[in-house]
């Protein structure tokens, strides 16, 4: 990669400038259509409510099956739902790439004085921040107000650590989506690849069902892969299931996975850039 190892061009002032510009872009994107925003907000609320209700129902049936209390399980569900709204893996770099390729406007992106992975990272960061501010925070505050202890973190330290862990999750998910985007470029089949990706995340990240419910072999596999670092790690930290040294090790594991994936992104992009065939005229 001809680019420097940082994700944004050098110069702190310029970096801030860029970050602000992309955040504004994200906010503007999300606020263009009023009705759409409100519908998204309602969706997020519905999703959170549905997952909370499911766990409440399961917990009522047989509390003995859970390694954590009912409150913690509902918190897990609420934050998992919010996490999947803010860190939405249906949109993102892969989706953006596929659209630009189909429209043939990818050439424009390649001509800009910023490498494509960086552009995508900046755009995606801007969009995720705006989702966090406009959807995540309000729904989270609403859930806290309504559910109280059932949605709250295990403690202030757990909350802060989970926040750090979620930041790493964002970077991890970006790398995974970018790699998926490279597969899309190769196969030109967004839909099929996306379905598989969605299946993999649902199965292996623990965002829907915590890994402790999995049969032993499946759990082993999940623990060997990076996906559980995306949701299971921050969620278990949030509810206090992992604390102290346990939490530190989990976060370290996230960081290691991030380094590995960054290298993979770097290599994949170097490989793809030379082979990029632009569709259409």
């Amino acid at each position: 990669m001809a680019d420097a190892p940082t994700l944004l061009p050098a110069g702190t002032a310029r970096r801030w400038d860029l970050a602000r510009a992309f955040l504004r872009y994200g906010l503007a994107n999300r606020t263009t259509y009023r009705a759409v925003y409100w519908a998204q907000l309602v969706n997020a609320v519905v999703k959170v409510a549905a997952i909370a209700l499911v766990w409440r129902a399961f917990h009522a049936v047989d509390p003995g099956q859970f390694p954590v209390g009912g409150d913690a399980m509902i918190a897990y569900g609420v934050v998992a739902a919010l996490g999947s709204v803010v860190l939405d893996w249906w949109s993102g770099p892969h989706h953006y790439l596929a659209r630009r390729i189909r429209l043939g406007t990818i050439t424009g992106d390649l001509l800009r004085p910023m490498s494509l992975p960086r552009q995508l990272f900046a755009i995606h960061a801007g969009e995720t921040c705006s989702a966090l501010l406009l959807l995540g925070v309000p729904v989270y505050l609403g859930a806290l107000a309504l559910l109280g202890r059932e949605a709250a973190p295990a403690g202030p330290a757990a909350g802060l650590l989970a926040l750090l862990s979620f930041a790493l999750s964002f970077a991890l998910l970006f790398c995974c989506s970018f790699l998926v985007g490279m597969i899309v470029l190769k196969t030109l089949n967004l839909l099929g690849v996306m379905h598989v990706y969605h299946g993999v995340i649902t199965l292996l990240s623990g965002f829907w069902i915590p890994l402790w419910f999995y049969p032993e072999p499946l759990r082993r596999i999940a623990e060997l892969l990076p996906f559980q670092s995306i949701f299971f790690t921050p969620l278990t930290i949030y509810i206090g299931h992992r604390r102290g040294a346990d939490a530190a090790v989990a976060i370290l594991q996230q960081a290691v996975w991030l380094c590995i994936l960054l290298v993979a992104v770097h290599l994949a992009w170097r490989f793809m850039r030379r082979r990029l065939v632009v569709q259409g005229g």
């Binding site: 504004r24 906010l27 503007a28 606020t31 009023r34 925003y37 409100w38 406009l134």
Partner: peptide, 9 residues
């Protein structure tokens, strides 16, 4: 302005 747009008509 972007965010204000969400509440006005």
């Amino acid at each position: 302005r972007s965010v204000r747009r969400l509440f006005t008509r």
